[in-house]
Write a protein that binds this DNA or RNA. Structure first.
Length: 324
RNA sequence: GGCAGAUUACCCGAGUGGCCAAAGGGGGCUGACUGUAAAUCAGCUGGCAACGCCUUCACUGGUUCGAAUCCAGUAUCUGCCA
Protein backbone atom coordinates (compact mmCIF):
# COMPACT_ATOMS: atom_id res chain seq x y z
CA UNK A 1 0.00 0.00 0.00
CA UNK A 2 1.34 3.43 -0.88
CA UNK A 3 1.44 6.19 1.71
CA UNK A 4 -1.21 8.03 -0.24
CA UNK A 5 -3.69 5.19 -0.17
CA UNK A 6 -2.96 4.67 3.50
CA UNK A 7 -3.97 8.25 4.13
CA UNK A 8 -7.13 7.78 2.18
CA UNK A 9 -7.99 4.63 4.05
CA UNK A 10 -7.23 6.46 7.27
CA UNK A 11 -10.01 8.93 6.71
CA UNK A 12 -12.60 6.25 7.36
CA UNK A 13 -11.63 6.41 10.98
CA UNK A 14 -9.94 9.77 10.89
CA UNK A 15 -10.89 13.16 12.28
CA UNK A 16 -14.36 13.72 13.62
CA UNK A 17 -16.86 14.29 10.90
CA UNK A 18 -20.27 15.61 11.71
CA UNK A 19 -23.01 13.09 11.25
CA UNK A 20 -20.70 10.15 10.77
CA UNK A 21 -21.33 7.28 13.13
CA UNK A 22 -18.38 6.36 15.35
CA UNK A 23 -16.60 3.03 15.19
CA UNK A 24 -17.19 0.97 18.29
CA UNK A 25 -14.60 -1.64 19.21
CA UNK A 26 -15.25 -4.31 21.80
CA UNK A 27 -11.93 -5.56 23.12
CA UNK A 28 -10.60 -7.66 25.98
CA UNK A 29 -9.18 -11.09 26.69
CA UNK A 30 -10.53 -14.24 25.16
CA UNK A 31 -13.52 -15.58 27.02
CA UNK A 32 -14.57 -12.26 28.45
CA UNK A 33 -17.85 -12.09 26.54
CA UNK A 34 -16.96 -9.75 23.69
CA UNK A 35 -19.07 -11.49 21.06
CA UNK A 36 -22.20 -11.42 23.16
CA UNK A 37 -21.79 -7.79 24.14
CA UNK A 38 -21.21 -6.79 20.53
CA UNK A 39 -24.37 -8.60 19.56
CA UNK A 40 -26.32 -6.73 22.19
CA UNK A 41 -24.96 -3.39 21.02
CA UNK A 42 -25.66 -4.24 17.41
CA UNK A 43 -29.26 -4.97 18.25
CA UNK A 44 -29.67 -1.81 20.28
CA UNK A 45 -28.04 0.54 17.80
CA UNK A 46 -28.73 -1.13 14.49
CA UNK A 47 -25.15 -2.16 14.02
CA UNK A 48 -23.11 -4.70 12.15
CA UNK A 49 -20.17 -6.65 13.50
CA UNK A 50 -16.71 -6.74 11.97
CA UNK A 51 -14.55 -9.58 13.17
CA UNK A 52 -11.16 -8.53 14.54
CA UNK A 53 -10.09 -11.96 15.67
CA UNK A 54 -7.28 -13.24 13.50
CA UNK A 55 -8.29 -16.87 13.84
CA UNK A 56 -11.97 -16.46 13.07
CA UNK A 57 -10.97 -15.54 9.53
CA UNK A 58 -10.64 -19.22 8.76
CA UNK A 59 -13.43 -21.36 7.42
CA UNK A 60 -13.96 -24.51 9.43
CA UNK A 61 -12.24 -23.23 12.54
CA UNK A 62 -15.42 -22.90 14.51
CA UNK A 63 -15.34 -24.81 17.76
CA UNK A 64 -11.76 -23.95 18.68
CA UNK A 65 -12.13 -20.25 17.98
CA UNK A 66 -15.45 -19.99 19.80
CA UNK A 67 -16.98 -18.55 16.68
CA UNK A 68 -20.64 -17.64 16.94
CA UNK A 69 -22.82 -19.96 14.89
CA UNK A 70 -25.12 -18.44 12.31
CA UNK A 71 -28.05 -18.96 14.65
CA UNK A 72 -26.22 -17.35 17.53
CA UNK A 73 -25.59 -14.24 15.46
CA UNK A 74 -29.32 -13.54 15.65
CA UNK A 75 -29.41 -12.10 12.18
CA UNK A 76 -26.70 -9.55 12.84
CA UNK A 77 -24.27 -9.43 9.89
CA UNK A 78 -20.75 -10.44 10.83
CA UNK A 79 -18.08 -9.28 8.43
CA UNK A 80 -14.59 -10.70 7.88
CA UNK A 81 -15.37 -14.13 9.20
CA UNK A 82 -14.85 -17.36 7.28
CA UNK A 83 -13.19 -15.74 4.29
CA UNK A 84 -9.93 -17.72 4.35
CA UNK A 85 -8.93 -21.33 3.95
CA UNK A 86 -6.73 -22.76 6.69
CA UNK A 87 -4.12 -23.14 3.97
CA UNK A 88 -3.99 -19.40 3.40
CA UNK A 89 -2.42 -16.60 5.35
CA UNK A 90 -3.30 -13.02 5.69
CA UNK A 91 -1.54 -10.05 7.20
CA UNK A 92 -2.41 -7.04 9.26
CA UNK A 93 -1.96 -4.87 6.21
CA UNK A 94 -4.59 -6.85 4.28
CA UNK A 95 -6.88 -6.86 7.23
CA UNK A 96 -6.53 -3.12 7.59
CA UNK A 97 -7.86 -2.54 4.10
CA UNK A 98 -10.65 -5.06 4.44
CA UNK A 99 -11.74 -3.72 7.78
CA UNK A 100 -11.76 -0.12 6.63
CA UNK A 101 -13.71 -1.05 3.57
CA UNK A 102 -16.23 -2.88 5.73
CA UNK A 103 -16.48 0.09 8.08
CA UNK A 104 -17.12 2.45 5.18
CA UNK A 105 -19.78 0.21 3.70
CA UNK A 106 -21.57 -0.25 6.97
CA UNK A 107 -21.58 3.48 7.55
CA UNK A 108 -22.85 4.11 4.07
CA UNK A 109 -25.88 2.02 4.95
CA UNK A 110 -26.36 4.17 8.01
CA UNK A 111 -25.47 1.34 10.34
CA UNK A 112 -23.13 1.35 13.32
CA UNK A 113 -19.86 -0.50 12.73
CA UNK A 114 -18.83 -2.64 15.67
CA UNK A 115 -15.39 -4.17 15.67
CA UNK A 116 -15.19 -7.31 17.80
CA UNK A 117 -12.16 -9.37 18.50
CA UNK A 118 -9.15 -9.86 20.71
CA UNK A 119 -6.33 -9.38 18.23
CA UNK A 120 -4.74 -6.19 19.50
CA UNK A 121 -2.68 -5.21 16.50
CA UNK A 122 -5.57 -5.92 14.15
CA UNK A 123 -7.85 -3.68 16.14
CA UNK A 124 -5.35 -0.87 16.01
CA UNK A 125 -4.74 -1.36 12.33
CA UNK A 126 -8.44 -0.88 11.68
CA UNK A 127 -8.87 2.03 14.02
CA UNK A 128 -5.63 4.00 14.08
CA UNK A 129 -3.47 5.67 11.51
CA UNK A 130 -1.00 2.89 10.98
CA UNK A 131 0.96 2.72 7.80
CA UNK A 132 2.47 -0.63 6.92
CA UNK A 133 5.48 -0.38 4.65
CA UNK A 134 5.64 -3.13 2.05
CA UNK A 135 7.11 -6.56 2.26
CA UNK A 136 9.10 -8.80 0.01
CA UNK A 137 9.30 -12.55 0.44
CA UNK A 138 12.82 -12.93 -0.97
CA UNK A 139 14.29 -10.10 1.07
CA UNK A 140 12.70 -11.44 4.17
CA UNK A 141 13.77 -15.04 3.75
CA UNK A 142 17.31 -13.89 3.06
CA UNK A 143 17.28 -11.91 6.29
CA UNK A 144 15.77 -14.81 8.19
CA UNK A 145 18.55 -17.04 6.92
CA UNK A 146 21.08 -14.49 8.07
CA UNK A 147 19.46 -14.36 11.46
CA UNK A 148 19.82 -18.11 11.73
CA UNK A 149 23.45 -18.01 10.65
CA UNK A 150 24.74 -14.91 12.38
CA UNK A 151 22.43 -14.54 15.33
CA UNK A 152 20.44 -11.69 16.76
CA UNK A 153 23.33 -9.52 18.01
CA UNK A 154 24.88 -9.41 14.53
CA UNK A 155 21.67 -8.29 12.86
CA UNK A 156 20.99 -5.83 15.62
CA UNK A 157 24.40 -4.33 14.97
CA UNK A 158 23.56 -3.91 11.32
CA UNK A 159 20.22 -2.37 12.16
CA UNK A 160 21.92 0.09 14.47
CA UNK A 161 23.91 1.47 11.55
CA UNK A 162 20.86 2.30 9.49
CA UNK A 163 18.19 2.76 12.13
CA UNK A 164 19.49 3.34 15.67
CA UNK A 165 16.03 4.26 16.94
CA UNK A 166 14.65 0.83 16.06
CA UNK A 167 17.79 -0.92 17.21
CA UNK A 168 17.25 0.51 20.68
CA UNK A 169 13.66 -0.63 20.83
CA UNK A 170 13.96 -4.09 19.37
CA UNK A 171 15.27 -7.23 21.03
CA UNK A 172 13.34 -9.76 19.00
CA UNK A 173 14.64 -11.69 16.00
CA UNK A 174 11.48 -11.35 13.96
CA UNK A 175 11.30 -7.62 14.48
CA UNK A 176 14.91 -7.04 13.57
CA UNK A 177 14.29 -8.93 10.36
CA UNK A 178 11.27 -6.79 9.60
CA UNK A 179 13.06 -3.55 10.38
CA UNK A 180 15.94 -4.49 8.11
CA UNK A 181 13.49 -5.59 5.44
CA UNK A 182 11.72 -2.25 5.49
CA UNK A 183 14.99 -0.41 5.24
CA UNK A 184 16.16 -2.58 2.37
CA UNK A 185 12.90 -2.05 0.51
CA UNK A 186 12.27 1.63 1.13
CA UNK A 187 15.66 3.06 1.94
CA UNK A 188 14.05 4.60 4.99
CA UNK A 189 14.49 3.53 8.59
CA UNK A 190 11.63 1.45 9.92
CA UNK A 191 11.22 3.90 12.78
CA UNK A 192 10.33 6.66 10.32
CA UNK A 193 7.07 4.86 9.60
CA UNK A 194 5.93 5.11 13.18
CA UNK A 195 3.14 7.60 13.79
CA UNK A 196 3.92 10.96 15.35
CA UNK A 197 1.11 10.53 17.80
CA UNK A 198 0.76 7.18 19.42
CA UNK A 199 -3.00 6.98 19.53
CA UNK A 200 -4.72 8.84 16.82
CA UNK A 201 -8.45 8.35 16.77
CA UNK A 202 -10.98 8.87 19.50
CA UNK A 203 -12.82 5.73 18.49
CA UNK A 204 -14.94 4.23 21.24
CA UNK A 205 -13.23 1.19 22.64
CA UNK A 206 -15.05 -0.84 25.23
CA UNK A 207 -12.84 -3.25 27.17
CA UNK A 208 -14.17 -6.24 29.02
CA UNK A 209 -12.29 -7.50 32.03
CA UNK A 210 -12.93 -9.14 35.38
CA UNK A 211 -11.50 -11.16 38.20
CA UNK A 212 -8.39 -13.04 37.11
CA UNK A 213 -9.18 -16.25 38.97
CA UNK A 214 -12.60 -16.26 37.41
CA UNK A 215 -11.13 -15.71 33.97
CA UNK A 216 -8.91 -18.73 34.51
CA UNK A 217 -11.77 -20.98 35.48
CA UNK A 218 -13.88 -19.68 32.61
CA UNK A 219 -11.11 -20.51 30.17
CA UNK A 220 -10.66 -24.01 31.56
CA UNK A 221 -14.36 -24.67 31.32
CA UNK A 222 -14.46 -23.29 27.83
CA UNK A 223 -11.71 -25.56 26.59
CA UNK A 224 -13.38 -28.60 28.12
CA UNK A 225 -16.60 -27.67 26.40
CA UNK A 226 -14.77 -27.30 23.10
CA UNK A 227 -13.34 -30.79 23.49
CA UNK A 228 -16.78 -32.20 24.29
CA UNK A 229 -18.17 -30.40 21.27
CA UNK A 230 -15.71 -32.16 19.00
CA UNK A 231 -12.59 -30.04 18.77
CA UNK A 232 -10.48 -33.08 17.92
CA UNK A 233 -12.76 -34.01 15.03
CA UNK A 234 -12.73 -30.44 13.81
CA UNK A 235 -8.94 -30.39 13.74
CA UNK A 236 -8.92 -33.73 11.96
CA UNK A 237 -11.37 -32.49 9.35
CA UNK A 238 -9.17 -29.50 8.60
CA UNK A 239 -6.10 -31.53 7.74
CA UNK A 240 -7.35 -32.34 4.22
CA UNK A 241 -8.14 -28.64 3.87
CA UNK A 242 -4.46 -27.88 4.33
CA UNK A 243 -4.26 -27.02 8.01
CA UNK A 244 -0.70 -28.31 8.20
CA UNK A 245 0.38 -26.39 5.13
CA UNK A 246 -0.80 -23.01 6.33
CA UNK A 247 1.44 -20.79 8.35
CA UNK A 248 -0.97 -19.05 10.66
CA UNK A 249 -4.00 -21.27 11.23
CA UNK A 250 -1.87 -24.18 12.51
CA UNK A 251 -0.66 -21.98 15.31
CA UNK A 252 -4.13 -21.38 16.66
CA UNK A 253 -4.69 -22.37 20.26
CA UNK A 254 -6.23 -25.78 20.51
CA UNK A 255 -5.49 -26.65 16.89
CA UNK A 256 -1.77 -26.68 17.54
CA UNK A 257 -2.23 -28.88 20.59
CA UNK A 258 -4.80 -31.30 19.18
CA UNK A 259 -2.73 -31.88 16.07
CA UNK A 260 -0.33 -33.57 18.46
CA UNK A 261 -3.08 -35.91 19.55
CA UNK A 262 -3.65 -36.89 15.95
CA UNK A 263 0.08 -37.47 15.58
CA UNK A 264 0.04 -39.71 18.63
CA UNK A 265 2.27 -37.36 20.58
CA UNK A 266 -0.22 -36.41 23.25
CA UNK A 267 -3.41 -37.65 24.86
CA UNK A 268 -6.64 -35.71 24.72
CA UNK A 269 -6.23 -34.93 28.40
CA UNK A 270 -2.73 -33.53 27.87
CA UNK A 271 -3.77 -31.52 24.85
CA UNK A 272 -6.70 -30.09 26.77
CA UNK A 273 -4.46 -29.09 29.64
CA UNK A 274 -1.88 -27.58 27.31
CA UNK A 275 -4.57 -25.62 25.52
CA UNK A 276 -5.93 -24.27 28.77
CA UNK A 277 -2.49 -23.08 29.84
CA UNK A 278 -1.73 -21.52 26.47
CA UNK A 279 -5.11 -19.80 26.42
CA UNK A 280 -4.49 -18.36 29.87
CA UNK A 281 -1.14 -16.99 28.71
CA UNK A 282 -2.72 -15.56 25.61
CA UNK A 283 -5.42 -13.84 27.63
CA UNK A 284 -2.74 -12.22 29.75
CA UNK A 285 -0.95 -10.91 26.67
CA UNK A 286 -4.20 -9.50 25.34
CA UNK A 287 -4.80 -7.72 28.60
CA UNK A 288 -1.30 -6.26 28.47
CA UNK A 289 -1.97 -4.96 24.98
CA UNK A 290 -5.31 -3.38 25.66
CA UNK A 291 -4.35 -1.99 29.05
CA UNK A 292 -1.66 0.02 27.33
CA UNK A 293 -4.26 1.92 25.33
CA UNK A 294 -5.56 4.79 27.46
CA UNK A 295 -8.65 5.16 25.31
CA UNK A 296 -10.20 1.87 26.38
CA UNK A 297 -13.27 2.19 28.57
CA UNK A 298 -13.16 -0.80 30.88
CA UNK A 299 -16.24 -2.58 32.09
CA UNK A 300 -16.41 -5.53 34.46
CA UNK A 301 -18.02 -8.50 32.78
CA UNK A 302 -19.79 -9.46 35.98
CA UNK A 303 -21.32 -6.06 36.67
CA UNK A 304 -25.06 -5.92 36.56
CA UNK A 305 -26.41 -3.93 33.67
CA UNK A 306 -23.33 -4.50 31.59
CA UNK A 307 -25.26 -4.07 28.36
CA UNK A 308 -26.79 -0.84 29.56
CA UNK A 309 -23.43 0.52 30.68
CA UNK A 310 -21.92 -0.24 27.31
CA UNK A 311 -24.94 1.22 25.55
CA UNK A 312 -24.51 4.39 27.54
CA UNK A 313 -20.93 4.73 26.31
CA UNK A 314 -22.09 4.24 22.74
CA UNK A 315 -24.81 6.88 23.14
CA UNK A 316 -22.24 9.34 24.43
CA UNK A 317 -19.96 8.63 21.50
CA UNK A 318 -22.78 9.08 19.01
CA UNK A 319 -23.78 12.32 20.71
CA UNK A 320 -20.25 13.64 20.53
CA UNK A 321 -20.17 13.04 16.79
CA UNK A 322 -23.50 14.69 16.18
CA UNK A 323 -22.53 17.92 17.90
CA UNK A 324 -19.09 18.21 16.33
C1' G B 1 7.94 -57.41 60.72
C1' G B 2 13.18 -56.99 58.06
C1' C B 3 16.45 -54.54 54.52
C1' A B 4 17.37 -50.54 50.95
C1' G B 5 16.12 -45.74 49.18
C1' A B 6 13.46 -41.09 49.07
C1' U B 7 11.59 -36.21 51.39
C1' U B 8 14.46 -29.15 48.31
C1' A B 9 10.54 -22.93 47.15
C1' C B 10 3.39 -23.16 43.74
C1' C B 11 4.95 -27.95 40.66
C1' C B 12 9.02 -30.91 38.56
C1' G B 13 14.04 -31.00 39.73
C1' A B 14 19.78 -29.87 40.53
C1' G B 15 22.70 -29.19 44.71
C1' U B 16 25.94 -33.91 49.08
C1' G B 17 30.17 -28.87 54.60
C1' G B 18 31.38 -22.25 53.31
C1' C B 19 31.23 -19.16 46.62
C1' C B 20 23.21 -21.18 48.60
C1' A B 21 17.51 -17.56 49.09
C1' A B 22 19.53 -22.41 46.73
C1' A B 23 20.98 -24.31 39.03
C1' G B 24 17.40 -25.52 35.31
C1' G B 25 12.46 -26.24 33.53
C1' G B 26 7.12 -25.62 34.18
C1' G B 27 3.47 -22.50 36.11
C1' G B 28 2.32 -17.50 37.69
C1' C B 29 2.97 -12.14 37.35
C1' U B 30 4.56 -7.76 34.59
C1' G B 31 5.91 -5.57 30.13
C1' A B 32 7.01 -4.98 24.77
C1' C B 33 4.61 -5.33 20.17
C1' U B 34 3.39 -1.69 12.67
C1' G B 35 2.98 -7.22 6.92
C1' U B 36 3.31 -15.02 10.88
C1' A B 37 0.08 -11.22 16.25
C1' A B 38 -4.13 -17.29 19.30
C1' A B 39 2.52 -15.32 16.67
C1' U B 40 7.16 -13.46 18.67
C1' C B 41 10.30 -11.33 22.47
C1' A B 42 11.96 -9.38 27.44
C1' G B 43 11.98 -8.94 32.90
C1' C B 44 10.40 -10.61 37.79
C1' U B 45 9.06 -14.84 40.85
C1' G B 46 10.63 -16.71 49.81
C1' G B 47 9.59 -12.09 52.97
C1' C B 48 10.78 -7.04 54.15
C1' A B 49 11.33 -0.48 56.28
C1' A B 50 15.46 -4.07 50.67
C1' C B 51 23.00 -2.25 48.00
C1' G B 52 21.03 -4.64 54.10
C1' C B 53 18.08 -7.65 57.32
C1' C B 54 14.76 -11.85 58.30
C1' U B 55 12.66 -16.87 57.41
C1' U B 56 13.38 -21.44 54.28
C1' C B 57 15.67 -27.27 51.75
C1' A B 58 9.87 -33.09 56.06
C1' C B 59 10.22 -32.64 61.79
C1' U B 60 13.23 -32.72 66.45
C1' G B 61 17.89 -32.82 68.47
C1' G B 62 23.24 -33.13 67.68
C1' U B 63 28.48 -32.59 65.34
C1' U B 64 31.05 -28.14 63.36
C1' C B 65 33.80 -21.56 63.40
C1' G B 66 30.02 -22.77 59.55
C1' A B 67 24.84 -27.69 57.49
C1' A B 68 20.01 -28.18 52.26
C1' U B 69 24.55 -31.02 52.50
C1' C B 70 27.43 -35.04 58.23
C1' C B 71 25.14 -38.00 62.74
C1' A B 72 20.76 -39.75 65.74
C1' G B 73 15.66 -40.21 66.45
C1' U B 74 10.54 -39.30 64.46
C1' A B 75 6.92 -38.96 60.41
C1' U B 76 5.39 -39.96 55.46
C1' C B 77 6.33 -42.29 50.70
C1' U B 78 8.81 -46.03 47.33
C1' G B 79 11.25 -50.75 46.16
C1' C B 80 12.88 -55.65 47.65
C1' C B 81 12.43 -59.67 51.41
C1' A B 82 8.81 -61.99 54.87
Amino acid sequence: MSPASATTAGTTSGPLVSGLLPVVAVVGPTGSGKSELALELAERFDGEAINADSMQFYRGMDIGTAKLTLAERRGIPHHLMDFLSVRDDTTVADFQQLARKAIAEIRSRGKLPILVGGSGLYNRAAIDVLEFPGTDAATRSALEAELGREGLPALLGRLREVDPVSADRINDGKRVVRALEVHALTGRPFSSFMPEREYFNPTLQIGLNGDRAELHSRLARRVHTMVEDGLLQEVESLIPEGLREGRTAVKALGYQQFLRVIDGEATVAQASEDTIVATRQFARRQLTWFRADPRVNWLDWSQSGLGAAAAHLVEEAIGRRATT
